[in-house]
Structure formats: structure tokens, C-alpha cells
Simulated assay, not measured.
Amino acid sequence: MARLRQYVMGYDIGCNRRRRRALRILRPCADLYQDSVFDCRLTADEADAIQQSLTEHLDEQDALFCIALPEATQSWQLGTGLEPLTAGLLVIE
């Protein structure tokens, strides 16, 4: 079974159309995201496939990064959150 790793992925894309396309690719696989930076738990094959899919839609002036975090990396959250009983969303207070 493939091992999940924590990845931080992000982009700097000037064109709104390409930026929306990148967002549609990354949003479903992200645990959390803020603007154009995504925190994802993926296998190495999944991360490679996402990078390949994104690079097919980028222009030469666009930028993309994918950082595989060390396996012992602890995730940190600033602030507190409450999970509503009826929703799968995280509400930040």
C-alpha cells in the first residue's frame, strides 16, 4: 500500500482562467487551503499526477511549487475551530 505524505502545493498564476483551472485541480485533494497554497495528504504517485496535470495548463510566466514535508512533520493550526454537527466544514472563530 502506498504511503501518504504531507505536501504543500501552491501557484502564482496571472491569468484568471488558468488560475481557476488550477484551483479546480487542487481543491478536491487539499485538506486545507488558503488562497493559492494547499495542504494535501497524498501518495507520491498522486502528487506527481497532480503536478503533471497542473503543468499542462500553465504558461511560462506562471509558477508552481510542490514541497514534500518530512514524514515526522507536525501540522500546526493557528486559531481555534469548531466543527458544526450538521456540516463537514470547519468554522474559524
Results as ranks from 00 to 15, higher is better:
Ala2Cys: 03
Arg3Gln: 15
Arg3Ser: 12
Leu4Gln: 15
Leu4Trp: 13
Arg5Phe: 15
Gln6Met: 06
Gln6Gly: 05
Gln6Trp: 09
Tyr7Trp: 13
Tyr7Arg: 03
Val8Met: 13
Val8Thr: 09
Val8Ser: 00
Val8Lys: 00
Met9Cys: 11
Gly10Pro: 11
Gly10Lys: 07
Gly10Tyr: 02
Tyr11Lys: 10
Tyr11Gly: 08
Asp12Lys: 04
Asp12Cys: 03
Ile13Glu: 08
Ile13Met: 01
Ile13Asn: 07
Ile13Thr: 04
Ile13Phe: 05
Ile13Cys: 02
Ile13Gly: 11
Gly14Met: 07
Gly14Ile: 04
Gly14Asn: 12
Cys15Val: 13
Cys15Pro: 00
Cys15His: 09
Asn16Arg: 08
Asn16Cys: 05
Asn16Tyr: 05
Asn16Ser: 12
Asn16Pro: 12
Arg17Ile: 11
Arg17Cys: 05
Arg17Met: 05
Arg17Gln: 13
Arg17Asn: 13
Arg18Pro: 07
Arg18Asn: 14
Arg18Ile: 04
Arg18Leu: 01
Arg18Cys: 09
Arg18Tyr: 08
Arg19Asp: 11
Arg19Leu: 13
Arg19Ala: 15
Arg19Val: 12
Arg20Val: 02
Arg20Tyr: 06
Arg20Glu: 06
Arg21Thr: 03
Arg21Phe: 01
Arg21Met: 02
Arg21Asp: 01
Arg21Gln: 10
Ala22Thr: 15
Ala22Pro: 14
Leu23Lys: 09
Leu23Tyr: 12
Leu23Ala: 15
Leu23Gly: 09
Leu23Gln: 13
Leu23Arg: 13
Arg24Gly: 12
Ile25Lys: 00
Leu26Ile: 01
Leu26Trp: 04
Leu26Gly: 02
Leu26Arg: 04
Arg27Cys: 04
Pro28Asn: 10
Pro28Phe: 04
Pro28Ala: 08
Cys29Trp: 07
Cys29Lys: 01
Cys29Ile: 03
Cys29Asn: 04
Ala30Val: 02
Ala30Thr: 02
Ala30Asp: 02
Asp31Glu: 15
Asp31Ile: 15
Asp31Lys: 14
Leu32Pro: 00
Leu32Lys: 06
Leu32Ile: 05
Leu32Cys: 01
Leu32His: 11
Leu32Thr: 02
Tyr33Gly: 02
Tyr33Phe: 15
Gln34Lys: 03
Gln34Asn: 11
Gln34Tyr: 09
Gln34Pro: 01
Gln34Glu: 12
Gln34His: 11
Asp35Thr: 05
Asp35Gly: 02
Asp35Glu: 08
Ser36His: 06
Ser36Thr: 13
Ser36Ile: 05
Ser36Asn: 10
Val37Ile: 15
Phe38Val: 10
Phe38Asp: 09
Phe38Ser: 07
Phe38Pro: 05
Asp39Cys: 06
Asp39Lys: 08
Asp39Pro: 00
Asp39Phe: 14
Cys40Ile: 07
Cys40Thr: 10
Cys40Gly: 10
Arg41Phe: 11
Arg41Lys: 10
